[in-house]
Each structure stands twice: as structure tokens, then as C-alpha cells.
Nucleic acid binder design. Structure first.
Lengths: 217, 217
DNA sequence: GTCTATAAAAGGATAGAC
DNA sequence: GTCTATCCTTTTATAGAC
């Protein structure tokens, strides 16, 4: 019986932590760092405010943990891509589609990054592991571009970081700014039919640029 | 003497309002809506906190006024473009360059829009004039696209709103997300040489897509 | 590890004189 | 229209029992 108790209790610490993180993420995403209320977070967890401070030290500590996990999550997803096995053009398309789908289906992630930018990335900059996290994306993209150029499929001379900037910009903006864009132009960027059209549009735009058709120059 | 006093005093109300708005804009941009402090704003104006409430009613009222003026400012700038006098290709290029330059040189505007999106555009939606403001951009772009297609310069079938989305996405993101992007990839998106390269890149990307070279299909 | 109660400070808003 | 002083609520954070 005591064994059952032990095994039942052990993972509780980790589960409590995960529970707090999940609720905190919602609150931060909805109200921003300053707008988020510690009491509101505590109320919606299984535990109390005291525990929240016990685990994370401060509101900022909790926010940083949320931020760190958000990046860990996207890294995990990206790891499932097997781009090396594909020809360059298909690999590029797949990478763009992945970015589009991930940001479209994780608006919370997008909003969190937007919030962190309001704070000039000061919390992200204090996370020690953050640079290595996203090095993989650039390395993968760099490899695709190199192979594509070697095969003569891609003509454009461009850096992986610049291509990534374009992909991110196009995919991120329509999620991050859908509220003001919708308010101003009276359209709903989250509608399914719009999503598919934009997905195709973004893929074609970026691929077209990287290919660098002679007709454009 | 009383006349001098009168004439010196008359514009003060307007100047005080403008002074408060300017300081408030800085504070909101720097700390977000919830993070901004009314006391901090009042301290940096020529006047007092009481006046701030006298003119704008509440913190939210002040924020809304800041938002409204930001859109009024960009509308004023856009009005100086004479796109109708140019051939479609040149007009499109000029519109893209304008958007790029405006957002690059007005990071405060970009951050304010990002903040408003965190709040799901709820304050923007309450501004009655906001829809008409940006109708002009779409109308101008629509005209360019129609003329381009009539002349056979543009082949791509696409809506003005979609093209605007692409332009905005590319121009906005590199300003709004420069902090997290820089933190993750160790680069400075605000550097002058990077700016010029990206400007050319964005123009060519969008123009290339709108032209819709047969080689891509 | 967890709960109740509370300290300590900040911040939005206003009263009331001039 | 403008200033000083201040109210009152909210909010972060912690003390101390169990």
C-alpha cells in the first residue's frame, strides 16, 4: 500500500509543474507578461499560489519557463522532419509547409513570441540553451540550399537565414496580426479556405524566389 | 498684453494634448498596455496626471487615442504616393518600398500594432473611422494589379488583399520580431547593410510572384 | 510539499481648491 | 484648465502552521 502511494506520488511534482506551466502559458498569451495575474494562474491550477512561487520563484521566472518550453516544443516537432532524404525542391516545400502548419495550428506560440518581442527578447536572451535550439533549422535549410544549387535547381544566391526570415515572416504575420488585419480589411485570416490559399501562395512565393527564374532578372 | 497672453495660451490645450500623446506612445510601446504606468507618463509630460485623465478619461482611452493617431500618421504618409501616374510595375515596386521604409523607420508603429494584436484588436475595433483609413491602400493596390493585368505585365491571378498581406508580412516581421530573431540566430536585423539587402529581396520576391513567371508553373 | 492568511507596495483614479 | 494630496483596489510576494 505504501508502495502504491509512493508510485502514485512520485510523478506528482512533475505533473504539478506541467499543470502550472500549461495554465500560465494560457494566461500570459491572453494578457501579456504585465497583464497576466499570478492569482488568476493559481486559481486555475490544481495547486495554490504558494506552490507556484515554490517552483518558479517569481512571475518572471514562470514566464521564462513558459517561453523555454514553447521553444522546446517546436524543436521536438521539427525533429520529426526527415529533410535529408528528400530532393532539394521537395525538402524546401516541406519545410515551408511545416512552418506554415505549425504556426497556424499553434497561435499561442506565435502570440508568446510576439509578447516576448514587446519586451525586446530580454527573457529569451537570458535562457542559456536558446541559441543551440534553432541552429538546427538553419543547418537543415543551409543543406537544402547547397544541394539545390549543386544540382542546378536553385539559382538564387541567398543565405539560409534570409530564406528563413522570409518563410517565418510570411507564416508568422498572418497569425500574429490576424486581429488588426481582420479589423482593418474586414476579413478572417483564420478561415479554413483562406488558410489553404495562403499556404499555397507562400510556398510558391518562397520557392519561386529561391529558384530564381531567369525571367525575373 | 492680455492679447499676447491669449494667443500664447490658446494653442496650449492642443499642445498639451499632443505632448501627452507623444509621451504616452513611448511608454505604451516600451511596456505594452498593461505594463505602461500612468504615473510614468505623467512625470515625463509638462503637465500632471490629473490633466491626463481630464483629456483622455482613462488609461485605455489614452491608449486608444495613441492607436488612432498612429494610423492617422501612416495614412498621411501614404497620401503622398502618386501611384496612378506610374506604370504598374514601377507603382508596385514603389508601394513595396514605401511599406518597407515606413515600417523600418517607424519601429514604434510596428510595436504598437504588435501590442494591439496581443489584445486581439479590441481597442482598434472600437475606433469608428478605422475601416475607411486603410481602404485606400487596397484600392490603390487593386488598381495597380488591374492595370498590370490589362497590359499583360502581371499574369498571376491574385487579390489585392493577399498581395498586401505578403508585403506587410515581409516588411513587418523583420521589425516586429527583430529581437527574438536576433537572439536566436545571433544577427542584427536593424543593421543598415542588412536593411538594404532585405529591401531588395522583398521587392523582388513580391514582384516576382505577382508577375507569375511561366517558369514556375 | 501544501495550505491559510497577510504583509507591503504599486497603481489607477478622483476630490476639491484655485 | 490646472495643481496637490490622497483614496481604494489590486497585485506580487511571503510568513508560518501542518
Amino acid at each position: 500500500m505504501s508502495v502504491a502511494k509512493e508510485t502514485a506520488r512520485k510523478p506528482d511534482a512533475e505533473r504539478t509543474r506541467a499543470d502550472i506551466l500549461s495554465v500560465a502559458r494560457q494566461e500570459f498569451v491572453e494578457h501579456g507578461l504585465s497583464g497576466a495575474r499570478v492569482d488568476a494562474i493559481a486559481e486555475r491550477t490544481r495547486t495554490t499560489k504558494r506552490m507556484l512561487y515554490y517552483y518558479f520563484g517569481s512571475k518572471e521566472g514562470l514566464y521564462s519557463a513558459v517561453l523555454e518550453q514553447a521553444y522546446a516544443d517546436i524543436r521536438t516537432s521539427e525533429a520529426t522532419l526527415a529533410l535529408e532524404d528528400l530532393d532539394p525542391l521537395t525538402a524546401l516545400r516541406r519545410l515551408i509547409e511545416f512552418t506554415f502548419d505549425y504556426e497556424d495550428s499553434h497561435p499561442d506560440f506565435v502570440r508568446l513570441i510576439a509578447i516576448e518581442n514587446v519586451h525586446q527578447a530580454q527573457y529569451l536572451n537570458r535562457l542559456p540553451t536558446i541559441q543551440s535550439v534553432n541552429a538546427n533549422v538553419i543547418a537543415a535549410l543551409d543543406s537544402i540550399l547547397a544541394r539545390g544549387r549543386a544540382e542546378g535547381v536553385f539559382v538564387r544566391a541567398c543565405s539560409a537565414v534570409d530564406v528563413h526570415l522570409m518563410i517565418s515572416g510570411l507564416c508568422f504575420y498572418r497569425v500574429s496580426n490576424r486581429h488588426t488585419f481582420g479589423a482593418i480589411f474586414g476579413c478572417d485570416l483564420s478561415a479554413p479556405e483562406v488558410r489553404e490559399r495562403h499556404k499555397a501562395m507562400i510556398v510558391e512565393t518562397v520557392v519561386g524566389w529561391v529558384i530564381g527564374s531567369a525571367a525575373l532578372r
